[in-house]
Computed example of a mutant assay.
Amino acid sequence: MGAPAIRLANAAAAYDGRPVLSGIDLTIRAGERVALMGRSGAGKSTLIGLIRAQAPERVALVPQAAALVGTLSVFHNVYMGRLDRRSTLHNLRTLAFPAAADIAEIRAVLARVGLAEALRAKAGALSGGQQQRVSVARALYDGRPILAADEPVSALDRAQGAAVLAEMAAGHETLVVALHDVALALDHTDRIVVLEAGRIVLDAPARDLDAAALAPFYQAAA
Results as ranks from 00 to 15, higher is better:
174 T>F: 05
195 L>H: 02
140 L>C: 07
134 V>H: 03
56 P>I: 04
90 H>K: 12
147 L>M: 04
92 L>S: 13
29 R>M: 00
150 D>Q: 14
38 G>V: 05
93 R>H: 10
215 A>P: 05
204 A>L: 09
18 R>D: 02
33 R>Q: 03
163 A>F: 08
140 L>S: 09
71 T>S: 13
170 A>K: 05
190 D>T: 13
183 A>R: 11
127 S>T: 04
88 T>S: 14
166 A>I: 10
49 G>C: 10
17 G>I: 02
183 A>T: 14
88 T>I: 14
217 F>P: 04
120 R>S: 14
51 I>R: 13
29 R>S: 03
45 S>N: 11
31 G>P: 00
220 A>M: 01
144 R>D: 12
176 V>S: 03
175 L>V: 02
70 G>P: 02
160 Q>Y: 10
37 M>V: 01
73 S>I: 07
103 I>W: 10
176 V>E: 05
45 S>A: 12
198 G>E: 08
80 M>L: 15
185 A>V: 05
108 A>V: 07
210 D>F: 04
202 L>C: 06
108 A>K: 06
162 A>S: 14
79 Y>H: 11
9 A>K: 15
151 E>Y: 03
39 R>Y: 09
197 A>L: 13
197 A>C: 10
135 S>C: 09
121 A>M: 02
200 I>A: 00
207 R>T: 14
72 L>T: 08
80 M>D: 11
9 A>F: 12
49 G>A: 14
88 T>R: 15
156 L>W: 11
101 A>C: 06
39 R>G: 11
125 A>S: 06
181 D>V: 08
80 M>Q: 14
117 E>M: 08
138 R>Y: 05
204 A>S: 13
74 V>Q: 01
65 A>V: 08
178 A>N: 05
137 A>N: 09
158 R>D: 14
153 V>D: 10
98 P>A: 01
193 V>H: 06
112 R>G: 08
24 I>E: 13
3 A>V: 08
79 Y>K: 08
60 A>E: 07
213 A>C: 11
199 R>L: 04
107 R>N: 13
19 P>V: 02
108 A>R: 13
72 L>D: 14
188 H>E: 12
155 A>Q: 12
86 R>V: 12
69 V>Y: 10
157 D>Y: 12
208 D>S: 15
125 A>L: 04
177 V>H: 00
196 E>P: 06
183 A>G: 05
208 D>E: 15
15 Y>S: 07
126 L>W: 01
129 G>Y: 12
200 I>H: 01
7 R>N: 05
200 I>G: 00
118 A>R: 13
9 A>P: 06
119 L>G: 09
25 D>T: 09
47 L>W: 03
33 R>Y: 01
154 S>Q: 12
66 A>F: 05
43 G>M: 07
35 A>M: 05
100 A>M: 11
197 A>P: 06
201 V>M: 01
67 A>Y: 09
105 E>A: 15
221 A>L: 00
209 L>Y: 10
192 I>R: 01
10 N>Y: 03
200 I>V: 07
128 G>D: 07
187 D>K: 06
34 V>E: 00
77 N>S: 06
128 G>Q: 11
87 S>F: 11
166 A>N: 10
176 V>F: 00
68 L>K: 04
210 D>K: 03
209 L>R: 07
165 L>Y: 04
